[in-house]
Amino acid sequence: MLKELDWGKVVIYTALLLFALIYIMPIYMTIITALKHPANISLATAWQPPGDINWGSFAEAYKKLGPNFMNSVYLTVSATIISAIIGSLNGYVFSKWKFPGNEIVFTLVLFGMFIPYQIILIPLFRVLRQLGLYGGIPGLALAHIVYGIPITSLIFRNFYARIPESMIESAQMDGAGFFGIYRRIMLPLSIPGFVVVIIWQFTQIWNEFLWGITLTGHSANPITVGLAQLAGGQAVNWNLPMAGSLLAALPVLLIYIFMGRYFIKGLLAGSVKG
């Protein structure tokens, strides 16, 4: 029995380490490339650690990405919070205030997730201009909020579905209305749901490029646009974009490292009943 257990553990740890190695490989390559001098970067020696470390890439990338970085922070924080609030209200209505045609309407909303983003660029641009929102962060935030409605509503609806109807009913007996139930019952139980939605939306919005470059003016460009500038042009010093990618990914990486535990808890809480 003991022997068998050990053998099982060996298999588990070997498998885990092997997977971990594969998962880390790309980031290792990114870091060592970022630390090399441009002239030392070539495919033939890509795996070798840099002989002479070049921190300059990070300083230069930081200098160039600075303004875009703050734009992305404003954009991502505001759009993520608003879309989480909207998603939670929608999820609440779809799961607890069913109306005739509820399922069909929900399905239609969900379908919005599958619209190809490239093709709606022209109408989206026109609508935002008519609203006077073209060029700045608010317009871009609006686009992300609108196209975030399907997924945030889905996550919250699944999440709230597990809250028993009896709790709602007894709150209604006590005289609580729509907002009363939301505030007293749904919201306190929603924290893990918010974590999942915030992680998801934050990642998506932070990393989005095409809208960022089309819908904002130069001064409001988010960080992905700045990153593309680093890698742009005809001749490329690869250390710079690699350093830039690491800097650009840092905030999201931190969120994953610190909120990863809650992410799983949130998924757990939201998915006991599909």
């Binding site: 608003i82 609203l131 929102l133 060029g135 700045g136 962060i137 608010p138 935030a141 003016g217």
Partner: peptide, 8 residues
């Protein structure tokens, strides 16, 4: 309102 108001 804050969202709409800060357009360029």
């Amino acid at each position: 309102v804050g969202l709409l108001g800060t357009s360029l």
